[in-house]
Nucleic acid binder design. Structure first.
Length: 202
DNA sequence: AGCACGATTAACT
DNA sequence: GTTAATCGTGCTC
């Protein structure tokens, strides 16, 4: 098996919407000590440029958005609602702020650890939200700025089975209620149709 | 210094 | 369907 199943920096150094689409089917991997937690990426969203009013980078270069302005292939992890962490992958060239939000994965490895961190929740609810998967995978602000493409990184993305267009649902990004058009409705959300959430009834 | 709000979640009516 | 939890960030004064 080629060790090079890690997605490299060139994968992330491309148009953000295309990266978000192609991340479906890839595997998110988290190493903690000798334990491996992984899952298939089934939902992702693109956030791109200062003009995107749904993107944190609309505020320009600040301490918070610094990582998004940096080189591709790094983790942008931020804190919101006073209790939740969110994981993004930085995309496109250094100096251009863009990233892909990880919204859901299907658990593969480390199920015992995931279950312990999502205690009280049924399996379908383990990692079906951006904050849920961060809790399950032990991802917090200490990983902000981490290089996913450097050898030995405790967080990275592995090549998986690509999802054909026929299996992908595309729609507006979630949770941008207060964002002006066209950014509120621009179809930059990608998800594997088989894993549609209940509220997506379609 | 103060304020409104957030790329959410879980529990509740 | 509604709402509390809980605090960093960016904006206004």
């Amino acid at each position: 098996m080629p060790e090079s199943s890690h997605l490299d920096r060139d994968f992330f150094d491309r148009p953000t919407v295309q990266v978000a689409r192609e991340l479906l089917g890839m595997r998110l991997v988290r190493l903690e000590g000798d334990r491996r937690i992984s899952g298939v990426i089934v939902e992702a969203e693109a956030y791109r440029g200062q003009e995107d009013q749904g993107c944190h980078a609309r505020a320009g270069l600040t301490p918070r958005t610094r990582v998004m302005f940096g080189p591709p292939g790094h983790a942008y992890v931020y804190f919101t609602y006073g209790m939740h962490w969110m994981l993004n992958f930085v995309t496109e060239r250094q100096g251009y702020p863009a990233a892909v939000l990880m919204r859901a994965v299907q658990p593969l490895d480390g199920l015992d650890i995931i279950a312990a961190r999502r205690v009280g929740q049924p399996r379908p609810r383990w990692t079906d939200g951006p904050a849920k998967l961060c809790q399950a995978f032990g991802i917090d602000g200490s990983l902000n700025g981490l290089d996913l493409c450097s050898p030995g990184s405790p967080l990275f993305v592995e090549l998986g089975d690509p999802i054909p267009d026929s299996g992908v649902t595309i729609g507006p990004r979630v949770g941008l209620n207060n964002v002006p058009e066209p950014w509120k409705s621009i179809p930059w959300r990608f998800l594997v149709s088989d894993y549609l959430h209940p509220q997506d009834s379609g």
